[in-house]
Design a protein around this nucleic acid. Structure first.
Lengths: 159, 159
DNA sequence: TTGATAAACGTCATATCATAACATATCAAT
DNA sequence: ATTGATATGTTATGATATGACGTTTATCAA
């Protein structure tokens, strides 16, 4: 049991399930779920935190799956574009999506102590921002919501 | 009259007023509003869009105010830390705060066509994200909200 | 006013994040 | 098998950001 989304969680089937779901989705949609792409997704699923592209690249390199930055970035682009992973802008890092296939606007809770990342939902159509945008005539296409703070595990064990 | 926050607006006094307000605030708080810091704020206020650190540095360099990256980054750090400017994470760029001195959680509306940036308010204490964080026991300290889309000026004149 | 301390600056070097460009290989559909 | 699209390998470079260290400037107490 590893802490996931700040809760204890059966992680053992988590990676396999995540990969399987994405594999199935790709098959349905005619997307190529190539070895590098699959491996990068596995790497991200393995950690419930965000990882930098070069950190992922180091792992790929050790496994002989690619040694140059574009290899990692291209795989990450694929995963992000299709909603299997997200980029955390605040950290210039990436994390596996916990709701692949579902259409959603993710919001992230980032612990500044342990760097774990939990994915929550935001509702960009509601609230003050939506109203402001509507009033101004601004058409929102995409919203980044990233909350930084202290996760429950780190609150309990302060430095 | 320049478009500001997507609206026509008297920009002429805007820079002077912004600088004056910050200068006064700094005096009150005992902060050093040095020439470089003041100039960087002016540069940011001059544009109602975000600017990269190196873009700002180029201007400083041309004016003999500093030629190395740390000069720009240190001034920007000062402005951001004190709430006179904000970093747009999505763009790795900076923009002058339109409500300096007021305690607020900014939300940004970023036009992907003309790169203008409008600062709005978000209400991180309300809405679904706040509820999720509370339920999980996550203590939010800071929230980044950045909406990307098309501003009214660019909607009217599509490419 | 001066001396001590902290804050800011100038500079060099380097770390970190990201992509352009182009050649080669693989896949998918005829 | 051919062809066009997609993916990969590789080189090179661009863009963003910070560590470290010595010098200068500001602040403030004595």
């Amino acid at each position: 049991m590893d802490p996931i989304g700040f809760e204890q969680h059966d992680h053992s089937t988590c990676i396999a399930d995540g990969v399987a779901r994405v594999a199935e989705y790709c098959k349905r949609e005619g997307l190529q779920f190539t070895p590098v792409r699959k491996r990068v997704l596995e790497i991200l699923l393995h950690q419930h935190r965000s990882m930098g592209a070069y950190e992922i690249l180091d792992i790929l390199r050790a496994e002989g799956l690619g040694s140059q930055p574009p290899v990692a970035y291209r795989a990450l682009d694929f995963l992000v574009k299709n909603g299997f992973a997200h980029k955390i802008e605040r950290l210039n890092a990436f994390t596996a999506c916990t709701h692949p296939g579902e259409n959603h606007t993710p919001a992230f809770l980032i612990c500044r102590k342990c760097n774990s990342v939990a994915e929550a939902f935001s509702e960009p159509d509601k609230g003050r921002l939506a109203k402001t945008a509507h009033d101004l005539g601004f058409r929102i296409e995409r919203v980044v919501v990233e909350a930084e703070g202290i996760c429950p595990n780190c609150t309990e064990a302060p430095a």
